[in-house]
Write a protein that binds this DNA or RNA. Sequence first.
DNA 1: ACAAACTATCTCAGCACTAAGATAGTTTCA
DNA 2: TGAAACTATCTTAGTGCTGAGATAGTTTGT
Lengths: 165, 165
Amino acid sequence: MADHVDLVLEQWRARRPDLDASPMGIIGRMSRLGALFDAELRRNFAKHDLDRASFDVLATLRRSNPEHSLTPAGLMHSSMVTSGAISQRLDRLEARGLVTRAPSETDRRGVQVTLTPKGLELIDKVLPTHVDTESQLLAGLSKAELDQLAGLLRTLLESLGDKRD
Amino acid sequence: MADHVDLVLEQWRARRPDLDASPMGIIGRMSRLGALFDAELRRNFAKHDLDRASFDVLATLRRSNPEHSLTPAGLMHSSMVTSGAISQRLDRLEARGLVTRAPSETDRRGVQVTLTPKGLELIDKVLPTHVDTESQLLAGLSKAELDQLAGLLRTLLESLGDKRD
DNA sequence: ACAAACTATCTCAGCACTAAGATAGTTTCA
DNA sequence: TGAAACTATCTTAGTGCTGAGATAGTTTGT
């Protein structure tokens, strides 16, 4: 059994035997899996006239609270992109009538972003197909293996300072 | 112990208890780890006037064979980007004198890309700092845990058809 | 009370990528 | 042999992001 990364590691052993390339065995695999996941998830988003960026915003609003409402800063922290990216995502979603931007009542610099009924309907339609696609992507591992994997990834995230907020 | 993704999963349970969001526990964590890894690796590349794209090309050439030489198609398969992206990456690297493009001797459509001495020197200088950075990113897991993680990721990649070529 | 420091959001130029398609050369096979 | 299918590479318009910085409003400390 060997995947593409095993070949890469062999090549490094042949060309640079002095180098311990083993960390690439983890980080290289994650990067490849990320690319494969992304490509497949994108196919599903496209069926519903969405892309990853729009889905992320709609899904974050959907799960955050019963009002489906957050500030741009809140969206930024959740999605790990810059404030400029959030502004542009919101421009697109607002133009499509999927979210609204309202001035904050407590802070005149602030904005409150809220899912419209149309946005709620769309994300609720896409969500089941999304987890379904994800589930198929993970079908190569058993339930026990998936739990083990989730645990290792959580430990790693915690060690890098990933927090709950 | 809980990371950001645990919060996300809790929120889904509260808002959409009918939905089994557990696949997000894996795919969401991989995506976050990918972003954190990328940011840190980029910092190291920048120290050497490089970016991820250029590093990928130089490293792939470095490990592939003793001649440090591949076709654009070979680079494309290894890096999971489109042919257009490879063309542009090679334009940049060629302009900096880090690789050469020579017409293939056997196929007049073909091109042979080769590391220059300057390119070889650069990648050999950066490589140890790169694996060092990766190693630090993984320091939160023991050697045994890393082996376990690599195995699970390999199984997943194989189940998705990732091949050695 | 007021200046300085800070915070929230937006704007925009520059960058690397994709998707589609152009160009040139090679292979297949009737 | 010659047409059709295929392959290798490059070109280009369009897209979404980052990084830097602008703008407006809030908080802090004296």
